[in-house]
Design a protein around this nucleic acid. Structure first.
Ligand SMILES: [Zn+2]
Length: 681
DNA sequence: GTTGCCGGGCC
DNA sequence: GGCCCGGCAAC
């Protein structure tokens, strides 16, 4: 009241009377002392989403409280203006506005400063400064109201994530859950309220906003007892008022029940949008949002540290739009991710609903759907074996792969499955066409010592991510670790095929088995893909029984494989693997650690395996590799000869180096007339 | 013819 | 497995 006289002296009309002003001030100021515990009780809180008409009263109180230090409290009582002449009213109003703006400017500066501090502290956690600037009045109002609304971030903080509060809408349903508030009702003055509402429309709006948002919202203006000193505006209140915030917090907890039970679904956004009160809670209580945000913040850190800045949470429409845009972007991103990873049917699902946990679970489950439906063809079926005796093929090379991916019987897969999942790339679309037109494509993992084959890029990506990259996030890195392999299945005399297909009778294999690999046979239980020998999978290597030739031995007759290195692992070079028919018995393919057989006249063997000590083993290894190459390049359909003689190396061998006279100095291989081990190619 | 080495056989 | 050799193809 110290400033009342001074201010009133400025007034042109002294009819106000200091007494009246003082009286009103005293009255209002006292009435706006909800600092007593009973005033802050759950039922006495000023904000009721149930009845907005009390907001101006509260606002009135707040303004009075706010203006009390400068003695303009009396001006805030519209009843004065009602009883005065219009000029007085106008001037009073003008003066009031000026003063209010002045004070608010100071306060805004304070808030901005605070916001900057918050940004610096929390890495730019959104304190929408635009809000503070666009609605200054509301700002002051909010600033003062944070005492009364003292809400609830603690309450939310303690809430389980699944019950994180959501933006509240002042719906009758929600209001019905709120206890009646008597505090404002006792002070409500009808016309006064109306005039006040008109006078401070922004504040009213803000009041509505806040009331709409309700204490259940984590973005509600909060007063953190931990750092009340951060905002000077708090100090405007009488010192005795301070320190009760904690009590207020405690008292506010009890009424927040409904907020926690409200579903946090993205579908609610439109509803809030109609209210024009949407805002993005700092804590991203939206299901999807919170799922996306790296740290799950149930409570915004800014709200912890600055109570006044928390009032800035009430977003202006612009910021609301931004939030909406952000939400849309986030969801779009999610949707795009789903396009890549989810089966098509997941696209038809609406935006994930439910609480945050369920939202996250949805996404994860979506991945699982992708996994199962996407045709991750890795089948626990163990080692592949063609040999004509077993028609069971597996995409899994039997490598480690403790992959938890659900095994799907490859017989259940149809080309369409892969088709649907590969809509991502147009080339894959073409691939699909090719697939129907006689092309079979599989995706080969280029990760060292893997070589897994999957019929779909999606499954392959996931395979690489999970098993190799060790991450669930698709950062496209996995694209570099797999390649697509086309298998052109000759439906007739193919010019590409180096040799005409061998009749099934020759190999003693059922035609279906023979042709299974390239899909020219379109049996219902036929595997759409073809097993390419793993470049390093040792499981299907030397240990294979003669009657159970390893990977390549299952090669279909005259199938031409082209490995497209669209995503080429650095260790690999574009290769063409020509698989021709061969006699099943004599040739056993031993998968090398890293062997790429090209059509180049000089096949290059890149081996990462250390040579064994034994010379014989050396030769055996080499021999096996050679046999492998021979097998892979076997050209003769007749079983008389399946060898492949590569071009002679330019390097001198032991024979030439030491001469026949020093045959004892030759390497064992040379002495045995085998490939030289001492001077390998 | 020489060289490299695959395939096969023998022990 | 060790050893040897016939035979083929590249040179
Ligand atoms: Zn040698």
């Amino acid at each position: 009241m110290r400033g009342v006289r001074t201010i009133c002296d400025v007034l042109p009309d002294r009819n106000y009377g200091l007494e009246a002003i003082s009286h009103r001030f005293t009255k209002q100021y006292k009435s706006f002392q909800p600092r007593r515990p009973e005033d802050l009780s759950a039922t006495n809180l000023p904000f009721s989403r149930r009845s907005w008409n009390i907001k101006p009263e509260v606002e009135d109180g707040k303004v009075a409280e706010f203006m009390a230090p400068v003695g303009l409290v009396g001006l805030t009582d519209v009843s004065i203006w009602a009883s005065s002449s219009p000029e007085v009213c106008f001037l009073s109003l003008l003066l009031f506005l000026i003063l209010t703006i002045t004070v608010l400017t100071v306060c805004i500066k304070c808030h901005r400063k605070q916001a900057n501090q918050m940004d610096a502290t929390y890495g730019g956690q959104t304190i929408d400064k635009k809000d503070t600037s666009t609605t200054q009045n509301s700002f002051s109002y909010d600033d003062n109201n944070q005492d009364a609304t003292l809400p609830s971030w603690r309450h939310h903080k303690n809430m389980p994530e699944s019950k994180l509060p959501e933006t509240h809408v002042a719906t009758p349903h929600h209001a019905a859950t709120q206890p009646p508030f008597h505090w404002q009702a006792a002070r409500a003055g009808g016309s006064n309220e109306i005039a006040k509402r008109d006078l401070t429309i922004d504040r009213v709006n803000c009041t509505i906003t806040m009331a709409t948002l309700g204490p259940g919202d984590s973005s509600q203006c909060t007063l953190s007892p931990s750092a009340p000193q951060n905002c000077p505006s708090v100090d405007i209140r009488p010192p005795r008022e301070r320190g009760q915030d904690r009590l207020a917090h405690t008292l506010c907890f009890g009424q927040e029940g409904p907020s926690g039970t409200e579903k946090n679904t993205y579908r609610n956004i439109p509803e809030r949008n109609r209210q024009g009160l949407i805002f993005a809670p700092q804590g991203r209580t939206e299901a999807g949002w919170n799922h996306l945000s790296a740290p799950q913040q149930t409570t915004s850190p800014t709200m912890h540290s600055c109570p006044s800045s928390a009032t800035c949470r009430v977003r202006s429409p612009g910021s609301v739009d931004m939030d909406e845009i952000m939400a849309a972007m986030v969801l779009t991103s999610l949707s795009c991710t789903s396009v890549v990873h989810d089966p098509p049917h997941s696209h038809t699902d609406p935006v994930p609903g439910g609480d945050m946990e369920s939202g996250g679970g949805y996404m994860k489950s979506g991945g699982g759907d992708m996994e199962s439906g996407g045709g991750d063809m890795e089948c626990g079926g163990g080692e592949l074996s063609d040999s004509g005796s077993s028609g069971y093929w597996s995409w899994d090379h039997g490598n480690i792969s403790p992959a938890p991916s659900p095994s799907v019987a490859e017989t259940d897969s149809s080309p369409d499955e892969g088709l649907l999942m590969e809509l991502e790339h147009g080339e894959e679309l073409n691939h699909t066409k090719k697939l129907k037109g006689g092309f079979k494509g599989v995706y080969k993992c280029l990760w060292p010592s893997c070589g897994k084959l999957l019929p779909s890029s999606v499954g392959m990506r996931r395979h690489i991510r999970v098993l190799h990259l060790g991450t669930e996030h698709s950062d496209r890195e996995e694209d570099f670790y797999y390649t697509k392999i086309f298998c052109e299945a000759p439906t007739g005399p193919s010019p590409v095929s180096p040799v005409p297909p061998v009749p099934a009778s020759v190999l003693g294999l059922p035609a279906s088995v023979l042709w299974a690999s390239c899909g020219s046979h379109s049996g219902p239980d036929r595997d759409p893909g073809l097993q390419i020998p793993s470049t390093s999978s040792g499981s299907s290597g030397p240990g294979s029984a003669p009657g159970q030739p390893s990977a390549l031995s299952q090669s279909a007759p005259s199938s031409f494989w082209q490995i497209q290195t669209e995503h080429l692992y650095p260790a690999c070079t574009p290769v063409q693997v020509t698989v021709t028919s061969r006699s099943p018995a004599p040739c056993h393919w031993t998968p090398p650690p890293l062997t790429v057989t090209s059509t180049h006249p000089k096949p290059q063997i890149v081996t990462g395996r250390c040579r064994s000590v034994s010379v014989g083993e050396q030769w055996l290894q080499q021999n096996s590799a050679t046999n492998r190459l021979t097998t892979m390049n076997a050209a003769s359909p007749s079983r008389t000869h399946c060898s492949f003689r590569k071009t002679r190396s330019e390097a001198k061998k032991c024979r030439k180096v030491y001469g026949l006279d020093h045959k004892d100095q030759w390497c064992t291989a040379c002495r045995w007339k085998k490939a030289c081990q001492r001077f390998p190619d």
